[in-house]
C-alpha cells in the first residue's frame, strides 16, 4: 500500500542526506520525495510517498522522528488531505498534431508553457492520477522529456459542524 508522510526538518546542510540515507539504510521503499521551504523560516517541509505496510510505515515515522534535525513527522495517509504534483512534459508536436495536444492540455486544465518548432512543453498540476492520465495520452505523440516534482501534501481543514472536509 502507498503511504504519504509529511516531515518538517531544520534547513541545515546535510539534513537531506540524513533523511535519504535513512531510507536506504533501513531498506525502505520510497516512491517520491519532495522538499522545499515551509511557512517557518529555516524549516523545510518534505513529503514522502512510500510503499509498505502499517508496521513499516510506523517504523519509518519513528526512525525519521529520531533524526535530531527532524522536528515533526505526520502520517497523513488516512487523513483528508490535498495531494498535488506538478509535471513538465515536453512532447513532440509537429504542425499536424499541435492543436490536438493543446486541446488535450486544455481538457486537463494544463498549460502550454513553451512552444518550439518540434515540441510543446505542457505544465500540469493535480493529483498524480490526473498527471498520469495526461502523460498516458501524450505518450503516443512521443515524450522527449518529463520532469515530475513528486507528491506534496497538506491536510484539509475540517468544517466546524459537520466534521467533514470540504473537498474542493
Amino acid at each position: 500500500m502507498k503511504y504519504t508522510l509529511v516531515a518538517l526538518m531544520e534547513n541545515k546542510p546535510g539534513v537531506l542526506s540524513r533523511v535519504a540515507g535513512l531510507f536506504r539504510r533501513r531498506n525502505y521503499n520510497i516512491e517520491s520525495l519532495s522538499v522545499g521551504h515551509s511557512e517557518t523560516p529555516n524549516i523545510s517541509r518534505m513529503t514522502i510517498v512510500l510503499h509498505g505496510d502499517d508496521r513499516v510505515v510506523q517504523q519509518v515515522v519513528k526512525q525519521l522522528a529520531k533524526l535530531i534535525n527532524v522536528t515533526e513527522v505526520l502520517d497523513v495517509s488516512s487523513q483528508p488531505a490535498v495531494f498535488r504534483e506538478l509535471a513538465l512534459i515536453k512532447v513532440k508536436a509537429g504542425p499536424g498534431v499541435r492543436s490536438e495536444i493543446i486541446e488535450l492540455a486544455n481538457i486537463f486544465r494544463a498549460r502550454v508553457v513553451d512552444v518550439g518548432a518540434a515540441s510543446l512543453t505542457v505544465e500540469i498540476t493535480g493529483p498524480e492520477t490526473r498527471v498520469n492520465s495526461l502523460i498516458g495520452l501524450l505518450n503516443p505523440y512521443g515524450i522527449d522529456e518529463l520532469a515530475r516534482t513528486g507528491r506534496v501534501a497538506m491536510v484539509r481543514e475540517m468544517n466546524d459542524n459537520s466534521g467533514q472536509a470540504a473537498y474542493l
Binding site: 508496521r55 510506523q58 517504523q59 519513528k62 526512525q63 522522528a65 529520531k66
Partner: peptide, 8 residues
C-alpha cells in the same frame, strides 16, 4: 526508551 524499537 526508544519508541523505534517497539515492533521493530
Amino acid at each position: 526508551i526508544d519508541p523505534a524499537e517497539i515492533d521493530k
